[in-house]
Design a protein around this nucleic acid. Structure first.
Lengths: 133, 133
DNA sequence: CTTGCACTTCCAGTAACTGGAAGCCTTATA
DNA sequence: TATAAGGCTTCCAGTTACTGGAAGTGCAAG
């Protein structure tokens, strides 16, 4: 499929997809007319990139994670080690995100949403240390 | 406290803290000698910035979220609306992150970690569409 | 009093896009 | 078949969010 369709299916702008090719993250085939030709497997990788980037992983981290997808030559012990390191990072992000959500959610539920100046969202967030770390 | 202490407590490099001041995210006091002087409340904001940036929110989104902390003039209905929009985003990030973790975790648990070439991490990730969207 | 380290500003460089120009390819319509 | 619209190509410049380094000041210890 062309880059437009791959863009739509992956959620990434075509510009970004071309950029990822420039830096060697993804090498699609080329059709006879010179257009890039994306397979479903390419689209899965693009979706994966879209996600992991939006969740705060750097492009280099994504490159590592992507290598779990594609490199059949890689030794499984090596792959497992990388995956385990990333799992620890993901779990940390999950707990931070959960905490952020719980704080916001609690305060939203306690906020009357009218124009009174004593909004507990403001009051609650402004004077309180974040718990973890 | 000086920027060094604020950096240590917030987890942000001093460089980044100064940058956030340049773009108007945070205005610490200045001591008589010209040094920046951070309060505990400043440190809470910095930690908050560190977190939300590492979780994939843009600086502009962080600015919005930060405005929930500090702007006492803001009307509570306005604040509540912003918080609710951010909650939806956070929930989406949470489910994506959870899915990413579950996939990786499942595969790590099924990977024997030796040098056999049929590592299920590779096999599982390479041929499978991401479920959600 | 000087050595060392933290602080200051300023300017340049990097990472990860993002926008726009100029031109080719394809398809729809006259 | 002509032509106009829109998607594709490359290339280059601009933006966001830092990050590193130079040059100089403040301060505490020996």
């Amino acid at each position: 499929m062309n880059i437009g369709a791959a863009s739509e299916k992956s959620g990434l702008p075509a510009k970004t997809i071309r950029y990822y090719e420039d830096i060697g993250l993804l090498r699609p085939d080329r059709a006879g007319n010179g257009y890039r030709d994306y397979s479903m497997s390419d689209v899965h990788r693009l979706r994966f990139l879209q996600r992991s980037r939006s969740l705060g992983f750097s492009v280099e981290e994504c490159r590592q994670l992507l290598s779990l997808y594609g490199d059949k030559q890689r030794e499984s012990a090596d792959v497992k080690a990388i995956a385990e390191i990333k799992l620890v990072e993901i779990d940390r992000k999950l707990s931070e995100l959960t905490e952020l959500r719980d704080t916001l959610r609690h305060l939203v539920h306690n906020c009357h949403g009218d124009n009174r100046p004593d909004c507990p969202i403001i009051d609650g967030l402004s004077g309180r240390a974040q718990a973890a770390q």
